[in-house]
């Protein structure tokens, strides 16, 4: 315990820096994954063949452990931030993709028939009807992806991308349990805190989408 307090008093700035790097890596990967997975998911809901292909591809990629993917990427992308972001993006895509497809496949048929029957132009229907109604379910996928990415971003330190993983690997190298504790618990706390925030946001979206009857 004393060690822990001593660590924070001596390395406070360094710790904050690591948390920031950790969150930054996760955020970039999640943003990229969202940009790729949401359009793919929307198209997948419309075209069944694309859906089964992309499900196969991403499903397979998902099975590969993140650490293995990181190591595989070293010869291609080198070390540092880029391969870390790429492998975290790969990790984040499947849950977002699957939930987006599900959300768009399960949109209420009567609502879509009404929108079409009123002559709503397709782009407007997508933006003002389909997206808002699909959002809560798609967002639940984003929430899953976020907790996976924050946990896995620890491994990024292994290839020199920084983040809270640095603490873990230093702790392992120096046999310092206090560093392992600090690193492990910080990642867990970060993941829980972000998860809780996203759950709140999701609940609010569900209310907005009118899915909770008054």
């Amino acid at each position: 315990m004393q060690n822990v307090l001593a660590y924070f008093s001596q390395n406070g700035t360094e710790f904050v820096q690591m948390v920031a790097t950790h969150l930054w890596l996760s955020a970039v990967a999640l943003a990229l994954a969202t940009v790729i997975a949401v359009p793919l998911g929307i198209l997948g809901a419309r075209f069944r063949r694309l859906d089964s292909v992309s499900e196969g591809v991403w499903g397979t990629l998902r099975i590969i452990p993140s650490l293995a993917l990181l190591l595989v990427l070293i010869p291609v992308l080198g070390t540092g931030t880029l391969p870390a972001v790429v492998s975290l993006t790969v990790l984040a895509i499947p849950p977002i993709l699957i939930n987006t497809t599900t959300a768009f496949k399960t949109l209420p048929a009567d609502v879509l028939e009404a929108a079409e029957g009123m002559g709503m132009p397709p782009a407007r229907e997508l933006l003002t009807v389909k997206l808002p109604l699909a959002l809560p379910v798609a967002f639940a996928g984003f929430r899953t992806a976020t907790s996976e990415v924050i946990a896995s971003a620890m491994l990024a330190a292994y290839i020199g991308a920084g983040g809270l993983g640095d603490l873990i690997f230093t702790g392992l190298g120096l046999m310092r349990t206090d560093l392992l504790w600090i690193g492990g618990l910080s990642v867990a706390a970060l993941s829980l805190a972000v998860g809780a925030l996203l759950s709140l946001a999701e609940a609010r979206m569900r209310r907005r989408a009118g899915m909770v009857a008054a």
Partner: peptide
Amino acid sequence: VIQKVGLFPH
């Protein structure tokens, strides 16, 4: 107008 109405719930 359809039987299931199809109002936009949001």
